[in-house]
């Protein structure tokens, strides 16, 4: 394997490797989402349990100690037309990435308890895999942030039960990180190169670029994921020059967020690389900063991406609840939404 020659700072010992851990997504559902769900339930959804298309958004980590969640708000319901365009414009203005999702809203608590969640997760993971294998996810990386949510709106008590799944595939040979492990971009590339890279990545995201992109150190420019073959020509030395960069919601200094998990799978399946440089882009105070960004070199497993092939592993990704266990969450909005309670408070 060709060693890095362009930057002396990056004199890595790429021997030993350990399994890379990804911080799972956290969901944060705004009361506006529940209010809109309640309105739709009464006005249009009725007793239908047909899946609904919803869209969450997230921003690269903005704080050194707090990761960004996958946020749902009223605008999450907009499917297309002006509302969806307005949501996209707002997401772009706030440098937030879109996450396509499916909402399964059921009618009773009993249905919620017994809902076939295994199938929901398997379906989402199956769609994810086919979009990776077909190349669709390379064109539109937001497809990698796919999620599903099962919900039950108890409109008598204004309580909302919900459970998110952010699908990923458990590989028999998991993604590993090569020595010297995960460190800041400045530490990996040296201040000058890192600052230049951070500025280019900031411009990419602010210019409405996808949440995952390629950065070439030799040109100092950002490219879409589809440019991988053109940039590297399948040549290992060029592959060392090109890093996979993504907007990382995780704030931890020791590991990246869940979004990288499916990206790494895409890189393994589509680009057939064994080693991949990754930049996890984070933007404290609204700007991507070299000190906040992480750099790591991944060792990727060999994965065949035949369009018809089965997913390379079982799907995982149910969000843990407040107790840290596999289980649903509940939002009690009686105090702010129940008309009778609001009426008694009004003076």
């Amino acid at each position: 394997m060709t060693r890095e020659t362009t930057a002396d700072v990056d004199d890595d010992d790429l021997g030993a490797a350990e399994v890379l851990r990804f911080e799972p997504w956290q969901s944060a559902v705004d009361p506006g989402f529940f209010a809109e769900l309640a309105r739709r339930k009464l006005d249009s959804i009725g007793l239908s349990e047909a899946p609904l298309r919803v869209t969450a958004t997230y921003a690269p980590a903005q704080h050194a100690l707090v990761s960004s969640p996958a946020s749902m708000a009223r605008a999450s319901f907009a499917e297309d037309g002006d509302d969806a365009a307005a949501r996209a414009a707002d997401a772009r203005a706030a440098t937030r990435a879109l996450m396509p999702g499916t909402l399964h809203n059921v009618n009773t608590f009993e249905r919620f308890k017994t809902f076939d969640r295994a199938r929901v997760l398997a379906d989402a993971a199956g769609a994810l895999w086919s979009q990776i294998a077909s190349g669709a996810a390379e064109e539109d990386p937001s497809l990698l942030n796919r999620f599903a949510v099962v919900a039950f709106a108890d409109l008598k008590r204004w309580s909302f039960y919900y459970w998110f799944a952010f699908p990923a595939m458990k590989l028999t040979d998991p993604v590993k990180v090569l020595n010297p492990g995960v460190r800041s971009l400045t530490a990996a590339w040296g201040e000058d190169v890192a600052v230049k890279a951070a500025a280019a990545c900031d411009a990419w995201l602010k210019g409405g670029g996808a949440f995952a992109w390629l950065y070439s150190r030799s040109t100092g420019a950002c490219y879409s994921l589809t440019a991988w073959k053109a940039l590297t020509g399948g040549n290992a030395a060029s592959a060392d020059d090109v890093a996979l960069a993504f907007a990382d919601a995780c704030c931890a200094k020791t590991h990246p967020g869940w979004a990288l998990r499916n990206l790494a799978l895409l890189a393994a399946a589509r680009w057939n690389v064994e080693r991949l440089r990754v930049v996890a882009a984070r933007s404290p105070a609204g700007r991507i900063s070299a000190d906040a960004c992480l750099h790591m070199t991944l060792a990727l497993p060999a994965i065949a991406a035949d369009a018809g092939a089965l997913p390379p592993g079982p799907a995982v990704g149910w969000e843990l609840n407040a107790k840290g266990r596999a289980g649903p969450r509940c939002a009690d909005l009686g105090a702010s939404m129940d008309p009778t309670r609001l009426a008694t408070q009004a003076v």
Binding site: L20, R21, P24, V175, V316
Partner: peptide
């Protein structure tokens, strides 16, 4: 799931 960061529990 070896690739998931330690559960928060």
């Amino acid at each position: 799931d070896a690739s998931a960061a330690a559960p928060r529990r």
